[in-house]
Each structure stands twice: as structure tokens, then as C-alpha cells.
Design a binder for these strands. Structure first.
Lengths: 327, 327
DNA sequence: CTCGCAAATTGCACTTCGTATAACAGATAT
DNA sequence: ATATCTGTTATACGAAGTGCAATTTGCGAG
């Protein structure tokens, strides 16, 4: 049972709200006698009033808060009488842990398991064709088939899996042809996005990054590729375009990860090319950068192909998620 | 209860097979005494043997075929003895109606209702924001919520609907910004695809079409736009790219349809531009055609915007599918 | 100090969505 | 033929959001 990286993600909202309030009362962030009102709490936690209601009821049961003759609850057990303190909770710097905040933002179990499945499915594809059985994946994830089918539908829409003639789910294999198509798309989309992004790039950041390349060993090709996307390309004022670029890159970066795991040597020469690229971007006239990006993409396409050929020889059998059945 | 344009789509496969065989026996396509075997029939109908089995059993019940001392069935009631005719059924030109064939091809109820919903959802968006309630749509379509959720998930992935903060499904509104983004994408993708398609275009067809433009009144701008896609752009040897282009056009052609229904005058000047475009394509050096296409796209973008502004003034209330709730 | 009113707040009923579960038929593979 | 898997239905329940009506609070006028 894997479910999510963030175990809080499955808890209902009211549990999360309860947790936050409880912790903040215990650590004294919310002083004794403070009047707790549903509405403002809901606003702070970015939810509706209903989960806050349940949370307050639960805290009342636990004796951390008590009622008084007025609206809302007072912090404290109510053993000794305190004068109600009325204060906007937004000013009290409520301590909301990062993971709780994350869990409050995203809703839906399928979103929490999706990333995990996506990564596994993308990664296995270089090694051939795999089949996915809904019921097994459901069992593995500890969710119902309903959720699994939701995940599968999205993976299909994003081009990561398909159905064979007997309508079973199939992932892969990643062929040279698929790779070619993906890179062809990249070299259409990414230079175009870079041009559109030009007026919105934070040039100081790019220059700072560019200066560190070569000396800072943490700047791997993967990191730089990500940086290029986030700092430059994704600034293009066209969300659909950016989304397309992201989803098109997905399989490729999974391939990269999988190859690194296999221990194939990293491609150090591309660091120099990233340096040139960031230099060109920093120099503003964006056209040369876009042209260079296009050339660069056709170079890494060839490198990807070469590395994939190595993998084809080395037969890998183990190490896949158990719900991925090699065909 | 709408379900599908094709009512056959919901019938089980064996019903469809039965129907085809029955009709072909009745109209004499399958002569008396012909040996019917599961395997070949399954191959012709592009299905597995099980549905064919049931179909044959049913035909046996109906007395249209009968058993004999051999594998398979003989056409005919079996009242008088006939000598078995062995003949590959594939050569007999079995008459399979188009709609039955369609129904046999696509599997899954959701596929059958999808197109209908997609069209409606795309069309309403110019007129503002609409909400879709799963249960109502399910009732309207006569399917379960499972199927509806499948459809909604796909529509969401394809960018036609989204969820609001309370996770209700929302379609639209189609803003000037969305329109701009879609056209920006078009002018990135379509010229690029046209270039890639150049070696695969059937030039005689293009020339033939081009010659008819102007004189043939059936060649509307919509028709020509479709022809450009199918005859030229979609020939690009990159299925992902072509799929993206298709799904990106979807909303725009829905807008077009909706505007025509409203009675807005058709844009006749663009016919000339299509003529120029097809001429350029026929002249082979594809670059000028690609450039022209890009320019042309920026022109129609402005036209679309202008027409949308007219719609904004004319308030339209009725005429939407009942499951689309205006906000 | 009290009254009265507007604004804020809560309680509650009503919806809708997310997920689970069981079930069965259709389809395929073995 | 049998076992396996998918497609779909039906049902159920909890979680969460919304709007309305009733209540409380804040605050200024008298």
C-alpha cells in the first residue's frame, strides 16, 4: 500500500484543520480566552466552514476549547473563567505546516497516487512493453478501481499508455520513432515558447545561474534542463503551450532518470552547451538563443537514441513496480 | 435520453453480428448450403469468436441456419438437404452497413456519447460560463455516472472544461485571451506540420481542389479549413503533432458552428485566401505556403475576435443542451 | 446607558462530488 | 470450455460547498 508521498493527503479536511488548531493551541500561538470563529478560520485555512465546524466540535470534545454565551468558542478548557479576547485570527500568524497546506490544496485521491504511477509507467517504457491490470494496481495502491480507472484515463490522454486490441492497458515500448516524434515536437514548441517568453524572463536570475555553470557541480544537465524550462520557457504567456511542453517532456525525463539509475555515464558535454544557451538568452536578442536551442535539441535526440541502443542490449528484468507486467 | 448518434453503438457485439449475418442470408448474399465457420466470420467482422458463436446460435434458433455433420453451420433451414459449399467468406463481399461497422469498431459507451457532449460543451462556451452536473448529464444521456465521469475526465484533459474551487465542472467562458492562446498555438503548430508534411502531400488532390475553389459553392470556408487539415497538415509524419493540432482546433470550429447557427454572415473573403494557400502548397516549395498560413491565421484570429464581440452584445439564452446550466 | 439597526456569524438543509463496493456481462486468451 | 480482465451499472456514504434564515455582535444615535 503506497498511496502518496504525503500521508496527510488522504486525511479529510476536518482532520487537518483539527490538527492545525490543536497544535497552535498547545504551542500557545492561540492564547487562552481567544474567540474562535468558523468563518475567519475557514478563510485562513482556505476551505469552507463545514470542515472547520467539525474540527471545532472535535476540539470541544477533547476539552481544548469551550463554549461561552456568545458566538464561537473560547480557547481553554473552561475550568476557570476568562474574558473573551476578540482578535482577527489572520493577524495571529497561525502556524500551518507545509505538508498540511499541501494536503489542503489538492483534492482527490487520484491526484495523490497519479504522480507515483506516472513516474513508474514512464520509466519502464525504455525496457519494453508492459501491461497494467486495473485490479492489481488498485490493490497495490490501496484504492478502488474507480480511482485507478481515473488515473488510467489521464495517463492515456497524456499519451503514456494505450489499449491493445483486447482493450488491456499497455505501456511502451518506447521506440526510436516515438523518441523522434517527441523531439520533433520539442524543437517546434520550445524555441517558439522561448521567443514568446523573451519579455517575461527574469534576466538577473538567468545571468546568476549562467555564472555558476562549470564551477558548481550541483548543476547537472538535468537540473539545467529544468532551469531552462522554469526560468525561461515556462514564462511564455500561453498556459496551454507551456502545459504541452511539460507533458511532452515527461517521458523523456523519465528515460533520463531510468538511464541514470542503470549507471550509464552522464552526458557532461551538454553542460557546456547549456552555458552557451543561457549566455545567448542573457544577451537578449532571443532569436539566436531559440535557434541554438533547436540545434541543441537535435543533438540530444541523437544522444538519447545512442543511449537507448545500449539499453536494448543490456536486458533488465527486475526493479519495476509489481503492477507492471512485462509482456 | 440521447446516448449516441448511432443507436447500434449500445447493442452487444453478438447482436450486431447476428444482424449482419441475418440480413446477408435474407438478401441472398450468403447462398444456401454455405458453410459458416466462426473463425473467418470473426475475422471479417473484426471481433473475437465468442460473439460470433452466440450469433450463430441465435440464427440457429431462428431457423436461418442449421447444423450438419461437420464443423460449422450451413445456411438454410435444413428442410431439404443441400451439399455444403465451402468458400472463404472474405471473398463473398459481405454487406456490412456503415453504422454497424462503426459500432463494431469503437468500444465503450463513453466513446459514443463523448462526441455529442464535446460538441455541445464546445459550442456553449462563447456565450459564457456554464456548469455541468454529473448526475444530470448521466440522466440525460441515459448512462451511469461512471461513464459521465470518464467523459468529463477526457474533456478536462483536452482543455474543454475545468473545475472551480468547489470542484464543480465548469465550461467556458471563452475569453479573448483563450482565443489568442489557441491561435498562437495554431500558428506555431500548423505551419510546422505543413513543412513536415510536404513530402507526403497528395499534390494532384490539392490541385484538383484548388481548381474548384471559387466556382463550386459547396466549398465553404469551413470545408476548406477541414480540407487543408486532412489533405495537407495531417499528412505530417508525427501523430502526436497532428493530434495536438486537431484538439487545438476543436473549440475554434465549435465557435464557428455556433456563430453560423446564430446567423452571422459567413466570412467569404477567406475563400480567396484559401485559394492562394492551396496554390502555394501545390507549387511545392513549402516554405512560402507555411509563411502564408501563419499570416492567414493571424488574420482570422482578428475576425474571430470581431465576431465574438458581436455575440457579446446579442444575449443568447436558450438553445443549449439541458445539462448545461448557465451561471 | 439603552435602543435599534446593519453587518457578521452560525446552524441547517440541500447539493454535488469523490470514492468504495459488489455485481454482471462482454470480450479475449489459454 | 475456463479463467481473466475490462466496461458498465447500481448503490451507498462521507466530505465538502452554498445559500438562506435565525441569531449575535458592533456601534452609533438619542
Amino acid at each position: 500500500m503506497i498511496r502518496s508521498a504525503n500521508p496527510l493527503a488522504q486525511e479529510p479536511r476536518y482532520e487537518l484543520v483539527t490538527r492545525v488548531l490543536r497544535d497552535n493551541i498547545r504551542n500557545g500561538n492561540l492564547p487562552q480566552g481567544l474567540v474562535l470563529l468558523e468563518g475567519p478560520i475557514a478563510a485562513v485555512m482556505q476551505t469552507s466552514r463545514v470542515p472547520v465546524q467539525s474540527a471545532l466540535r472535535q476540539l470541544l470534545d477533547e476539552g481544548l476549547i469551550h463554549r461561552f454565551d456568545g458566538r464561537g468558542y473560547l480557547v481553554g478548557s473552561g475550568q476557570q473563567t476568562v474574558t473573551p479576547i476578540r482578535h482577527d485570527i489572520r493577524d495571529l500568524q497561525l502556524d500551518i505546516p507545509r505538508d498540511v497546506d499541501d494536503a489542503l490544496q489538492t483534492r482527490g485521491t487520484w491526484l495523490h497516487v497519479y504522480d507515483h504511477v506516472e513516474k513508474q509507467v514512464a520509466q519502464c517504457q525504455i525496457f519494453g512493453e508492459f501491461r497494467i491490470v486495473e485490479t492489481e494496481l488498485a490493490e497495490y495502491l490501496g484504492v478502488s478501481r474507480t480511482v485507478v480507472r481515473d488515473v488510467m484515463a489521464r495517463l492515456q490522454e497524456r499519451g503514456l499508455i494505450r489499449k491493445n486490441t483486447s482493450s488491456h492497458w499497455i505501456a511502451g515500448p518506447l521506440t526510436a520513432r516515438t523518441l523522434r516524434e517527441k523531439f520533433e515536437l520539442r524543437s517546434i514548441l520550445e524555441p517558439a515558447a522561448l521567443r514568446l517568453a523573451a519579455p517575461h524572463i527574469q534576466y538577473p536570475e538567468v545571468e546568476a545561474l549562467q555564472a555558476r555553470i562549470g564551477s558548481d557541480p550541483t548543476l547537472t544537465p538535468e537540473y539545467l534542463s529544468e532551469a531552462l524550462l522554469e526560468l525561461c520557457i515556462a514564462r511564455a504567456p500561453n498556459t496551454e503551450l507551456v502545459d504541452l511542453i511539460r507533458s511532452n517532456r515527461l517521458l523523456l525525463s523519465a528515460v533520463n532518470r531510468a538511464l541514470s539509475v542503470l549507471g550509464l555515464p552522464r552526458d557532461e558535454t551538454s553542460i557546456d552547451q547549456y552555458q552557451t544557451l543561457f549566455q545567448l538568452i542573457a544577451l537578449h536578442p532571443i532569436d539566436s538563443a531559440a535557434e541554438y536551442l533547436r540545434d541543441y535539441l537535435s543533438i540530444i535526440e541523437r544522444r538519447y537514441l545512442a543511449r537507448m541502443k545500449i539499453v536494448a542490449v543490456v536486458s533488465v528484468t527486475g526493479g519495476f513496480a509489481p503492477y507492471l507486467i512485462s509482456q
